[in-house]
Amino acid sequence: MAVAPLDRKLLAILAADIVGFSAAMEADEPGTIARLMAVHSELLDRLIDQYHGRIVKLMGDGTLVTFDSVVDAVGCGAKIQAALAERNAGSAQRDRVMLRIGVNVGDVTLIEGDVYGDAVNTRRNARPSRKVRSGKTELETALRLNPGSFSVLTYYLSWASAFGEPARGADLADRAVKLNPNYQPWASGGLRYAYFMSGRYDDALKVMERQKPENYSKYAWAERAGSLAMLGRKTEADAAVKEALQRFPDLSIEAIANDPAFNAAEHQRHIETMRLAGFPPCASGEVLAGLTKPLRLPECVAKTTP
């Protein structure tokens, strides 16, 4: 019996899922479902349609979308994250929704409206949005085709350090600020990280002024205190560490150093600056219990050695 040829096509695939979904469902299933549905109706559906995407699958907290253009896929992902950050800024902590977004490009097979292939399977490796696994090729493509897009620049600039080019990330941040000097507070996170990783600590602190301290993440507090310490502003660094620990009691150097979203160089920058700022070095037992193979600092290993 002859088998009909498969319908194959080169597509851009966007995969999104909610950070901490399982824990949120355990804590408040009705509320989590309501927030997920609200994000879809208020943001995702509208923006996916605006960028000519097609939702292929809805899998609990996950969404799989196809695009004919990688530029549209990247633009959609950037817009979603920007809109979500703005929405979260005005919401209580328990009502905030954070998405991981992954973009990949590849040859896929179309069967009865579904898609199959390696380009789709890479969604399982998605990291938080700053490390979309599409790789450097998509970074270059997006920047080449959208040189004047603030959203695309801010979406990609913090990846430069992941590709071993932190100075380029700072250059992209300069371009973004020049394009839109009146940028919204949501953009300051990527700008801060790009400047921090390139060692431009003054600029990292400057862009943080667009955000209120109550909206800082634990990474923002770690990088703020570390930047102040690197600039020799010890009193301010001490105050930042104190406030950070009040807001995030489990924040430690090891806690940040074990985040899988960062590469070795990024971990080292955090370790050096957080150590100088005076953060507690060792992660709590509760944090360590959630890690399969935790990275331990020498001083923390010494404490546990009989």
Score class of each variant (00 low, 15 high):
Lys218Ala: 09
Thr292Tyr: 08
Glu26Cys: 03
Thr137Trp: 12
Gly53Pro: 09
Ala229Ile: 03
Tyr193His: 10
Leu44Phe: 14
Asp118Cys: 07
Ala126Gln: 11
Glu29Pro: 06
Asp174Tyr: 03
Gly199Ile: 00
Arg8Ala: 14
Asn121Lys: 12
Lys131Trp: 13
Leu99Val: 02
Lys212Trp: 05
Gln268Glu: 14
Met98Pro: 03
Cys76Arg: 07
Ala257Trp: 01
Ile80Tyr: 13
Gly77Ser: 13
Thr66Phe: 11
Glu266Trp: 02
Asn146Tyr: 00
His267Ile: 06
Thr305Asp: 15
Ser284Asn: 11
Ser129Ala: 10
Lys57Ile: 06
Glu214Thr: 07
Ala83Arg: 10
Asp203Tyr: 09
Arg130Asn: 09
Lys136Cys: 08
Val287Gly: 04
Val97Asn: 09
Val70Lys: 09
Ala237Arg: 01
Thr32His: 02
Val56Gln: 15
Ser198Asn: 03
Asn146Asp: 11
Gly190Arg: 08
Cys300Pro: 03
Val39Ile: 13
Lys131Tyr: 13
Leu11His: 08
Ile111Thr: 11
Met59His: 10
Glu272Lys: 07
Lys218Asp: 14
Tyr156Gly: 08
Phe150Gln: 07
Ile271Cys: 02
Pro213Thr: 08
Phe279Ala: 00
Ala82Asp: 15
Trp221Tyr: 14
Leu10His: 13
Glu29His: 08
Ala240Asn: 01
Leu145Gln: 15
Arg200Val: 00
Arg296Val: 09
Asp17His: 04
Ala142Trp: 02
Val108Thr: 06
Val177Arg: 06
Leu143Ala: 04
Asp250Phe: 00
Arg87Phe: 10
Phe150Thr: 07
Ala170Met: 04
Ala126Val: 11
Phe21Met: 01
Gly189Gln: 10
Asp238Tyr: 06
Thr304Trp: 14
His52Leu: 09
Glu243Pro: 06
Gly199Glu: 03
Leu291Ala: 05
Met230Gly: 02
Ser188Lys: 04
Phe279His: 00
Glu26Ser: 14
Val97Phe: 11
Thr305Glu: 15
Glu165Gly: 05
Lys57Ala: 14
Val207His: 04
Ile101Glu: 05
